[in-house]
């Protein structure tokens, strides 16, 4: 089966700024797909292009076989898009917002009540139906925005950082809803800077400064990092950071809370590393071999990426 979304060699610039360079990925039907990366990675540009709000400078972007350059209306009819910023009408009530978008998407009138009931059920917004959208809490706003993008039963859902600025409880609730939607067969493309959310995606593409660094399932990406990794519980982290970094065999050091994660060159084993560190720090150290997290992979990829760029 052909993928629902296909992005091939997509590039986009704003004047001098090259927002996305030569990006390629595809999203299969029914998949929960993540665009992962920090601010300025090009996630929003990519998503706006998917929903036909921007025109690609180079490359081909298609949704359900339709070109985003040409078939605006047809793509817009089957797509639901939630911009990063809350973009509903704050002076309209919850129900008025829902009805407005239902009308814009020509939802059949006899189905409207049914659909609204269904959306109310998962968003639990029914008791707030007469409340003005501007007076909702952050989490409720996001759920209303999601409901509005779902009102026309889209085939593809594009969500730009839906959980940024939302409290942790609402965040996990929101992802619960996304998983339910995926069960129902909706294809979802979601962007996030959070690695724990990236782990919940079926497949991801990791982006940085407009370039795709890697793609695959989160598991694949973690396994692809074959470099050994050790945790060092070190109290004087800041003071010794650069000395540890300079120790022989050490490839990179990252601080994670109370500990440092050290990646080493491939030919270095645990004993040699601890020997090197003991020599550098002039005292015994306790190393733990650990499996890298997605965040480690991400940081390693970015470092590799910048090395390549240089």
């Amino acid at each position: 089966m052909k993928p629902l979304v296909s992005v091939e060699h997509f590039s986009k610039s704003y004047g001098e700024i090259r927002a996305v360079r030569d990006l390629s990925f595809s999203v299969r039907r029914g998949e929960l797909f993540g665009l992962i990366g920090p601010d300025g990675a090009g996630k929003t540009t990519t998503m706006r292009t998917l929903v036909t709000l921007l025109r690609p400078d180079e490359g081909t972007v298609t949704v359900d076989g339709m070109d985003v350059r040409k078939q605006l209306k047809a793509i817009r009819a089957i797509t639901g898009y939630m911009p990063q910023r809350f973009s509903l009408y704050p002076d309209l009530s919850v129900e008025q917002n829902l009805r407005f978008f239902a009308e814009l998407f020509s939802v059949p009138r006899n189905e409207l009540t049914d659909r609204m009931q269904r959306l109310y059920r998962f968003s639990r917004l029914e008791e707030f139906s007469t409340r003005l959208a501007g007076r909702l809490s952050g989490g409720m706003k996001q759920k209303l925005a999601l409901s509005c993008t779902l009102i026309h039963d889209p085939v593809l859902l594009v969500l730009d950082e839906p959980t940024t600025g939302v409290d942790p409880v609402s965040r996990s609730e929101f992802w619960e809803i996304l998983r339910e939607l995926r069960e129902q067969g909706v294809t979802i493309v979601v962007s996030t800077p959070y690695m724990d959310e990236a782990m919940k995606c079926d497949r991801i593409v990791i982006m940085h400064s407009g370039v795709a660094l890697a793609h695959g399932t989160p598991g694949e990406l973690i396994n692809s990092m074959r470099l050994p990794m050790y945790a060092l519980d070190e109290r004087d982290l800041v003071m010794n950071f650069s000395r540890i970094e300079a120790a022989s065999g050490v490839r990179s050091v990252q601080s994670f809370g109370d500990s440092l994660h050290i990646t080493t060159d491939e030919d270095i084993d645990e004993d040699r590393l601890s020997a090197a560190l003991e020599q550098t720090l002039d005292r015994p150290v306790r190393l733990r071999r650990i499996a890298p997290s997605l965040e480690d992979v991400f940081i390693a990829l970015i470092e590799q990426g910048t090395e390549h760029a240089e």
Partner: peptide
């Protein structure tokens, strides 16, 4: 300015 235009535009309007 409030971004609602972005949301309307992605409909078949």
């Amino acid at each position: 300015e409030t971004g609602t235009m972005e949301q309307i535009l992605v409909s078949p309007v």
